[in-house]
Amino acid sequence: MTASPEPPAVRHLAAVQDPDPAPNPHATEEQVQAALQDTKLAQVLYHDWEAENYDEKWSISYDRRCIDYAVGRFTAIAPGAPVPYGRALELGCGTGFFLLNLMQGGIASTGSVTDLSPGMVQVALRNARNLGLPVDGRVADAETIPYDDDTFDLVVGHAVLHHIPDVEQALRECLRVLKPGGRLLFAGEPTTVGNFYARWLGRMTWQATTRVTRLPFLSGWRRPQTELDSSSRAAALEAVVDLHTFDPAELERIARSAGAAAVHAHTEEFAAALWGWPVRTFEAAVPEEKLTLRYRLFMYRAWLGLSWLDEKLLRRVVPREFFYNVMITGIKPR
Rank of each mutant, 00 (worst) to 15 (best):
P7I: 04
H12I: 03
L13F: 09
L13N: 02
A15F: 02
A15W: 07
V16Y: 02
Q17P: 06
D18N: 15
D20T: 10
P21R: 05
P25Q: 06
A27G: 03
T28S: 14
V32S: 04
Q33G: 10
A34R: 11
A35S: 05
L36Q: 14
T39L: 03
K40A: 05
K40C: 10
K40L: 10
Q43V: 05
D48V: 09
E50A: 06
N53I: 06
Y54K: 07
S59C: 15
S61T: 09
Y62A: 04
D63P: 02
D68N: 05
V71M: 06
F74C: 05
I77P: 02
I77S: 04
A78Y: 07
G80T: 08
G80V: 03
P84I: 04
P84R: 00
Y85K: 08
A88W: 00
L91Y: 04
T95Y: 13
T95K: 01
F98S: 01
L99A: 03
L102N: 00
L102V: 06
I107Q: 00
A108S: 09
S109V: 11
S109F: 01
T114F: 10
D115M: 00
L116G: 13
S117Y: 11
G119Y: 05
N127I: 15
R129T: 11
D136F: 04
V139T: 08
P146H: 10
P146S: 01
P146K: 01
D148Y: 13
D149V: 14
D150K: 15
D150S: 13
L154M: 04
V155I: 08
G157Q: 01
H158Q: 12
V160R: 00
L161S: 09
Q169K: 08
L171S: 15
R172S: 12
R172K: 10
R176F: 13
K179F: 06
L184F: 14
G188R: 02
E189M: 09
E189G: 10
P190C: 12
T191W: 05
G194K: 07
F196I: 06
F196Q: 10
Y197D: 03
Y197S: 11
A198N: 04
W200E: 08
G202A: 07
R203Q: 10
W206V: 13
Q207K: 12
A208M: 09
V212I: 10
R214G: 07
L215W: 01
R223V: 04
D229F: 15
S232A: 03
A234Y: 08
E238W: 11
V240P: 01
D242M: 03
F246E: 02
P248V: 15
L251V: 01
A260R: 03
A260N: 06
H264V: 09
A265I: 07
T267D: 08
L274I: 08
V279F: 12
T281K: 08
F282Y: 13
E283C: 04
A285I: 11
P287N: 13
L291W: 06
T292N: 05
R294T: 08
R296F: 09
G305V: 03
G305K: 14
W308D: 04
D310W: 14
D310F: 13
K312E: 02
R316T: 14
V317H: 14
Y324R: 15
N325K: 03
I328K: 11
G330Y: 07
K332S: 00
